[in-house]
Design a protein around this nucleic acid. Structure first.
Lengths: 219, 219, 219, 219
DNA sequence: GATGAATGAGGTTTCATTCAT
DNA sequence: AATGAATGAAACCTCATTCAT
């Protein structure tokens, strides 16, 4: 009746948004505990009991703030996103040259992926398991690809990129290539030196798009 | 861990390799049933009971041939591989031109992926869940990349491909790009027309490698 | 268990009889909330949390005034009884004729039952569940039957009622008949028109007792 | 897929109708255990664990045959009904006189109720709690009343019963009177001697209906 | 007194695995 | 070998009750 969180099913919505400082602390401990357990045991093997234990609260307290594993996982994701929130690259660095932009973008992505490999593995796993989270990922991937497709189109219009490429498909393909390589190297632990990885991926982007000097004449 | 009886696979030696024709039939039914259930319910939600039911045998019979879900999944994979076993492309078609080879290879891969989308989704899922199967995939990916890396090296030596690219990393990157796009389109059902997909991916391979005419002079 | 403080009811002496006006208000809100929840959800599904919520007080406040669901139910019953407390029929109306009395009494009972059907259903339910409340009902039923038995005996002595009937058993039987019909019609919602119901029940009373004109001569 | 019991929701119908003798034995033990526990602890306090324990089977075995407490209760009811199934009174005894029929019928009903008091208490309780079972009771009550109403109508037509009574309402009322008295005496344990009880109730039926000699002239 | 979060016992349910026939 | 019922170890989840603020 009173300001309850709008949950999916609207059933007997029992979960609470913490009103007191103490509640805030407990909820926080649970999210932290969940992250710890998820990273350690994986999504499937994480038991709610263990999360509560890791948070140092009674098992029942979990249900004060979350209805199930899925929900607390969403909270972990949210928390991680806030953590990772940097100002956007271009805005920060003012890069305009396409090559530099590609390098900066790939470099930053791979660095961050490497840094949070455990978490990325987890996200990858959950996307395979939970439809809700999978949908979220698709959405993000699409938004990202759309942005990149626009950049590619601009380059094509300026005569700086291969005009025969479909911008959207290309954007998807190149992004997927990078993210999959990040997964391969940092989650599956196939050892490739960072610089070699970035360098090769950059080169494939540049070659793939047939990037030319802004002037327009080939090197 | 200590002094295991030297059985076939080191397990607790209970499963039987069917000797009789009847046994062969039962085992076959189980594998077929498993595939059906896996494709329908996904790996996680597939219950051994359901597999037995789908196979039309008693639940207990499962354990005559397999020890657990993982093992029967392996059997499904094996069966599928036999099915998909075509004679290798080059051997079959005798293609030698790199561009043609890329097209033939991507085209065949995507066609087959589309054809078996359900199964591919399943494999993707299980690779996220089961370490054994994950290792298998890594191994295959590596073998495949190694083969492609060798081809790339040959092209570079003949002056037909960008010599600055790391052959192995490039091979991994381009393969991952294709397989990930296949996943995106045929499992996640992001609609992209087949020809546009193949065409764009081919072009990125060609551009990415900076493939030149066998003659050796740039366009 | 040992050496209990001699409190009002011998319980573990925690509940408070409100001293302040604020306390009075809170207690009242709880009883009102309980009634609402009991009528809505039934006794079994009424959760103490819900009662507190319906009362607009914190869940913990419940225990300031009551120890458990049973106790607050008793409070609801008490409150309802006060509400329903009419001056007694005869005293109010001065009826002395047996037939008129039967009609007035049945009519009033059924009217009130219909009016408070939800509550009556609740009482019926709780009587099935809670021994304390069940005992209370038995007691009331007996008191009521005893009163009626006395009237029947008087009628028999005056030659106005069948002398072969056991007054107490008859009193119970006829009362039970009426209350059970009320339950059937207004709780179980078996549609019978009010007047037909009252009329038939009156007639069975009259026939059952073989009521004769006060004068004493048979019909 | 194969001959499953048609359950209400048809979901993942997991319960089994025993195919083997052993299964039959286990199911039987569960129903017997349930009856024992229900009679001992009441419906509400009966835990599925206890039922399994009383049946001497593992807790999980319960779910081989039943999905929940409600279902096994239904099985108990069914079993009891089979037990109580006597050939119908009239058919058995060939009674045609209304008075004798009333006596025989009430006598038999009360005898049986007394005999199975614990069970009847249980049924009464569950009817208050479980809508499914409540509906069943209503249905039965209606069927029974309809039969009796027909008899009353016949008597009225033959001039042997008070023609002013509504047959259906009267039938309900008199039946409810008897069943409620049975409840009062044998469940609530209000001591009334059997013969006095039957005698008084018979008399109220006879008086209530104003039963006359078949010949038609009053006594 | 009021608050609302924390507690944890207790019951339910699932299903991989075993085993007697 | 096949059968299908029995087993019991987990996990989950609820909510009456307590308690620090």
């Amino acid at each position: 009746m009173t300001g309850q969180v709008p949950t999916e099913d609207g059933a007997h919505a029992r979960i609470t948004t913490p009103r007191s400082a103490r509640g805030e602390r407990t909820r926080g401990a649970l999210v932290r505990g969940a992250r710890e357990v998820f990273e350690r045991d994986g999504y499937l093997d994480a038991r709610i009991t263990d999360i509560s234990k890791a948070a140092g609260v009674a098992s029942g307290s979990f249900y004060t703030y979350f209805n199930n594993k899925e929900e607390i996982f969403a909270a972990v994701v949210e928390q991680v996103q806030e953590e990772m929130l940097h100002p956007h690259l271009r805005e920060r660095t003012g890069i305009t040259d396409a090559r530099e932009m590609i390098d900066a973008s790939n470099r930053e992505y791979l660095r961050s992926y490497k840094q949070n490999a455990r978490l990325m593995a987890l996200f990858e796993q959950v996307a395979q398991i939970d439809p809700t989270f999978r949908a979220l990922r698709i959405q993000r991937g699409n938004a990202f690809a759309q942005r990149n497709a626009k950049l590619i189109r601009q380059l094509q219009e300026r005569g700086e990129a291969d005009p025969s490429l479909d911008p959207l498909v290309t954007a998807h393909a190149l992004s997927n290539m990078v993210s999959r390589m990040a997964y391969m190297v940092y989650v599956l632990e196939q050892r490739i030196a960072f610089e070699r990885l970035v360098g090769t991926l950059n080169q494939i982007w540049i070659n793939g798009l047939q990037l030319r000097e802004p002037g327009g004449h080939a090197s």
